[in-house]
């Protein structure tokens, strides 16, 4: 493998890892703050991709799709928290698993009623649709680079909000000790609601940005859900930095696994997870005692 091919694969790995990070950070935030395990997280990723397709087709502008898709997902998240998720706080994990599984069935059926079950392609905006010529027969699409930059910006924003703002302080305190934060007088009802909606919006955003380079299809949420779970297990629950490390690890493992060991590439990330579990059962950045 020459240096340029290696570079291209590395970029692919980073780009894949960054999108994974967007989705998984939403999942880990929701778990860290609300203490709710949300199996429907992948369904919102899928919904985001379908929204991107639908809005982009209706308006002809992908940027509108990004903004409107995220806004719609955020509002849906607020509503769902208010109607269903709120009732799960303090319930056992079995109830959370099954309620969110019920939500998946509902979302899948709603998606079929709204958008059908066809596979769709989304075209990226014209100014991002070119490719950069690397050598005479090797080029790299600009849109993939744009994803890297965009996701890095979003990741930076998440880190800034969490480490530098009052909201971030509350979120960190909640992840550390939920009960104590509540005792200190933080209004957790609204924090919960906005964190859940943000988590959902991040999942949808992942689906929206991936739509132009992948196809939009009904089962796309399932595989993403499993991958985000592996990311969270690798990084440590509730840790956004851990999610970033986990996502990049999976991006690298999956991309280079497909290059070097194509026959077993599907299993490699699970082997990685098994190794991390043997080494640090609570994740790379997870707290040691649980």
């Amino acid at each position: 493998m020459d240096l340029i091919t290696f570079g291209v694969q590395l970029l692919n790995a980073i780009q894949y890892g960054m999108v994974l990070f967007l989705v998984a950070s939403g999942l880990t935030l929701v778990f860290g703050i609300l203490g709710v395990i949300n199996l429907a997280h992948g369904a919102f990723y899928m919904l985001g991709a379908y929204l991107a397709y639908w809005i982009a087709a209706a308006t002809g502008n992908f940027l509108i799709a990004v903004v409107a898709g995220v806004a719609i997902a955020f509002v849906v998240g607020l509503l769902l928290e208010n109607v269903f998720i709120r009732r799960l706080y303090g319930r056992d994990h079995l109830a959370q698993v099954l309620l969110s599984f019920g939500l998946i069935l509902v979302i899948d059926e709603v998606r079929e009623m709204l958008f059908g079950k066809d596979v769709h392609a989304v075209t990226p905006p014209a100014w991002l649709s070119g490719s950069i010529q690397l050598t005479t027969n090797l080029s790299y699409p600009v849109y993939r680079l744009a994803i890297c930059v965009f996701c890095l910006a979003v990741a930076g924003l998440i880190f800034l909000v969490i480490t530098r703002t009052k909201i971030g302080m509350i979120v960190r305190a909640g992840a550390e000790n939920r009960e104590m934060t509540r005792v200190l007088g933080i209004n957790y009802d609204s924090v919960n609601r906005y964190v859940f909606a943000t988590g959902i919006a991040l999942a949808a955003l992942g689906g929206i940005v991936i739509a132009p380079i992948s196809t939009v299809f009904p089962g796309m949420g399932d595989s993403m859900l499993i991958l985000s779970f592996v990311v969270v297990v690798l990084g440590g629950i509730g840790s956004v930095a851990g999610a970033a490390i986990g996502a990049l690890l999976i991006g690298l493992t999956d991309t280079f696994g497909k290059v070097f060991f194509p026959s077993v590439s599907g299993i490699l990330i699970y082997l990685l997870m098994a190794l991390v579990l043997l080494w640090r059962p609570n994740g790379i950045l997870g707290r040691r005692e649980i």
Binding site: F31, V97, I226, V233, I267, Y270, L277, N282, I290
Partner: peptide, 26 residues
Amino acid sequence: LALRTRGVYFIMVTLAFGEMLYFFFH
């Protein structure tokens, strides 16, 4: 492997390993 973890980790880990077997046959 999974029993090294607790609670919500256990759910995620069992889900992931179950999917590994799914992909093995898929």
